[in-house]
Simulated scan of single mutants.
Amino acid sequence: MEILMSLVVGVLFTAAVYLMLSKSLLRIIIGTGLLSHGAHLLILTMGGLKKGAAPLLGEHATSYVDPLPQALILTAIVISFGVTSFFLVLAYRSYQELGTDDMDQLRGNDQYE
Rank of each mutant, 00 (worst) to 15 (best):
residue 49 L to Y: 04
residue 77 I to R: 10
residue 62 T to R: 14
residue 35 L to E: 06
residue 70 Q to C: 09
residue 62 T to P: 05
residue 51 K to I: 09
residue 39 A to S: 01
residue 61 A to E: 08
residue 40 H to Y: 10
residue 82 G to H: 00
residue 75 T to C: 07
residue 64 Y to D: 05
residue 54 A to T: 12
residue 79 I to F: 09
residue 86 F to H: 04
residue 98 L to G: 09
residue 58 G to E: 13
residue 98 L to A: 05
residue 79 I to Q: 03
residue 77 I to V: 13
residue 77 I to Q: 07
residue 62 T to M: 13
residue 52 G to N: 04
residue 92 Y to K: 00
residue 85 S to M: 15
residue 66 D to V: 00
residue 98 L to K: 14
residue 67 P to N: 03
residue 82 G to D: 01
residue 60 H to T: 15
residue 38 G to Y: 02
residue 76 A to F: 08
residue 67 P to C: 05
residue 66 D to T: 01
residue 42 L to N: 05
residue 86 F to L: 14
residue 96 Q to M: 02
residue 55 P to K: 08
residue 77 I to Y: 02
residue 57 L to R: 13
residue 69 P to Y: 00
residue 76 A to Y: 03
residue 83 V to S: 06
residue 69 P to E: 10
residue 94 S to H: 06
residue 53 A to K: 01
residue 56 L to T: 05
residue 99 G to P: 02
residue 39 A to C: 10
residue 100 T to S: 07
residue 60 H to A: 15
residue 57 L to N: 14
residue 95 Y to V: 09
residue 37 H to Q: 15
residue 84 T to L: 14
residue 42 L to I: 06
residue 57 L to T: 14
residue 85 S to F: 15
residue 58 G to H: 12
residue 78 V to P: 06
residue 88 L to N: 11
residue 90 L to V: 06
residue 80 S to K: 05
residue 41 L to R: 02
residue 48 G to K: 11
residue 39 A to M: 07
residue 70 Q to V: 12
residue 88 L to T: 03
residue 65 V to P: 02
residue 45 T to F: 07
residue 37 H to D: 15
residue 98 L to E: 11
residue 38 G to T: 10
residue 37 H to V: 15
residue 54 A to Q: 05
residue 75 T to N: 06
residue 93 R to C: 05
residue 79 I to P: 06
residue 83 V to L: 13
residue 62 T to I: 13
residue 79 I to V: 12
residue 79 I to W: 03
residue 72 L to H: 00
residue 83 V to H: 06
residue 71 A to M: 04
residue 61 A to H: 08
residue 83 V to N: 01
residue 50 K to H: 09
residue 68 L to E: 08
residue 100 T to Q: 01
residue 63 S to W: 12
residue 77 I to H: 04
residue 53 A to Q: 07
residue 70 Q to P: 08
residue 90 L to H: 04
residue 52 G to I: 00
residue 35 L to Q: 10
residue 58 G to I: 10
residue 68 L to N: 04
residue 39 A to H: 03
residue 78 V to I: 13
residue 78 V to Y: 07
residue 40 H to M: 01
residue 51 K to G: 12
residue 84 T to N: 15
residue 51 K to C: 05
residue 45 T to N: 09
residue 86 F to I: 09
residue 86 F to Y: 12
residue 57 L to E: 15
residue 91 A to N: 00
residue 61 A to D: 04
residue 94 S to Q: 00
residue 57 L to V: 13
residue 75 T to W: 05
residue 47 G to C: 08
residue 48 G to T: 11
residue 63 S to R: 09
residue 80 S to C: 09
residue 44 L to R: 03
residue 83 V to W: 01
residue 83 V to M: 07
residue 64 Y to V: 13
residue 38 G to V: 03
residue 75 T to I: 12
